[in-house]
Simulated scan of single mutants.
Amino acid sequence: MKTIFTKLTIVTSCIFTALYANAEEITSPAHSQNQPAEISKAAAINEPTTTNEPSFNFYGELGVGGHSALEGDDKGRYSDGTYIEAGLEMEMGNWFGLLYAEGWTVQVDGEGNPWATGHGWGGFEGGVNRAYVGYRTDDKTEIIVGRNDSSLDDVQWWGDATVEYGYTVPNTRDLNLAVKVQNLEGKLRYSVSAAPEGKFDEDDALVNFGKYDRYADKYTYAAMANGYVQYDLLEDLTLLGGAEVTDGAGEMVLVGAEYKNVAARVWHHTDQGTDTSEGTETGFMASTWYEASQGVYLSAGYNYANNELETAEDEVTSYVNAGVWWEYGGGKFATAMDSKFYLSNDTSDSDNQVFIMQYFYW
């Protein structure tokens, strides 16, 4: 979730190098997972500071809406995607920090099973997503420590200009305790992050929102390191390469390229399994966007992922999505729509869907 056409994006064919000396979010038009407000605001944290007086910036966003299946058992049922987020940025000289919280509604069916469509609401789930401090050197290198997103999560939607339904690349995302080193200035930009094994779960959470709240469990990860390099080869051509290594959970490589308003990315993960299966995932995504009028963006994408599993049947996910992003009120409001249609080579047995959301930013 972030602001302005937040997935206007970046993508990539480049070699990932583990640049270690010198090392939050990229602009990409709007996923409900990657929506405008947070991105443009978080970008402000990278602006040079010329005073040692502390400064604060409070911002946030509210999204009201969700999804509905166009076929299958859940055809016509509403799946809620309502959420709220807010962050407090702090800067003083070369030091900066961010405290960011998020929450969303939890749906339940008549028997109390969570995340069912077309029924009622069973409460609220959420927590503190980011809590970190950082130091920015005079050459714009940033060292960040605390609860953070991984470097590859910063480029999660690189090359995906569509509103909501772009395929999620299988990299590690939110980290309970991590160190990130990055420099996002100039033609060559990079970011590297590393974290020890995460064992943070609901028992460690300071606040629980109800019996369905499982927010804290997302910070339970194996030890990992990931990062990316992006390079502006030409004025309108940006390349990117990234990689991730985890302790016992495989490795991933990612490359991509963006030229003007067309972008593509390719990735391969050596161990993209579930609780009952292990295997590899190889994926490809391409997207494009067009500014139909001021603040109105049309977008379309193709998404493909091949999961070759060791203890289950192989699965192919293949679909196209297309939508519109309309931003108005000086960036205070946005209305979004996206649609997803699976192709004949898809074996995931998923339903075609539509997504509609109204956003409010402050």
Rank of each mutant, 00 (worst) to 15 (best):
N352F: 00
F96Y: 02
Y100D: 09
S40W: 09
G295I: 05
D73Q: 08
K260S: 15
Y221E: 10
A116S: 06
S318R: 03
E258K: 15
T246E: 14
S55V: 11
G227L: 10
T280L: 10
P114N: 02
V245T: 14
K180Q: 10
A305W: 11
L175R: 06
N176W: 08
G273W: 00
G127Q: 03
D149G: 14
E185M: 04
G227M: 11
T141H: 11
N303S: 13
G97H: 00
F56R: 08
W267H: 03
Q35W: 09
N208S: 12
E308N: 08
K140A: 14
G103E: 05
D73A: 14
S277V: 11
T162E: 11
M285V: 15
S344G: 02
A257I: 09
Y359M: 12
Q358D: 09
K75R: 10
E89W: 01
E291H: 01
A264K: 05
G127M: 02
E125M: 06
D275I: 07
L239G: 12
S348P: 05
G250R: 00
V145L: 14
V106H: 00
F209L: 15
E71D: 15
G186S: 06
G248Y: 05
E308F: 01
R77I: 09
D338A: 01
A42C: 11
Y165V: 15
L206N: 04
A195I: 04
T220E: 13
A178Y: 01
S339I: 02
E25V: 13
A205C: 05
W267R: 02
D338F: 00
I26M: 12
E315N: 05
G134P: 06
E315H: 00
P48M: 10
G120Q: 01
D314A: 04
D149H: 10
T12P: 13
Y359A: 15
S339K: 03
